[in-house]
Amino acid sequence: MLDINATLVGEMIAFAFLIWFCVHFIWPHITKAIEERQLKIADGLNAAERAHAELKSADNKVAAEIKQARQQAAEIIDRAQQQANQILDKARADAVSEINRLKAAAQDDIASMAQRAREELRERVGALAVQGASKIVQREIDPSAHKALLDQLATEI
């Protein structure tokens, strides 16, 4: 029942053929595909890592640029405020000087008008004094004859 016979030789040949077939037509193709896929996966992982690093550096750059822009904006606002203050100060100074100028002019006007009024008043007072004096002396005084007298009176007033 456990007899060994020519089956053994046949099976040995069959086994050898199977090994040969597997060595030449099965193993190399599949291992090649697997190894290529391993390379692809390794490449993919590397690329992903690289992209990750690039993204990080880009993020950093963006953050730095935003910071810089914010700083610049703050500077611009500062400068603008300073300029505005300067303009305001200048306007205020101009206004003050204009006020002073106008005030001085007005004071001059007032002074000259007062002068004129005073002179007018003096003349009128002179005239009145002459009239009064003529009335007091009850006679006609020759204005030309007494001009010198009247003028003197007028200056004294």
């Binding site: 597997c22 193993w27 193709h29 599949i30 595909a33 692809k40």
Partner: peptide, 13 residues
């Protein structure tokens, strides 16, 4: 042989 060979022939990475 046929089973593994057909798969090996069409094996893609």
């Amino acid at each position: 042989c046929l089973w593994f060979w057909t798969k090996a022939r069409k094996a893609t990475s």
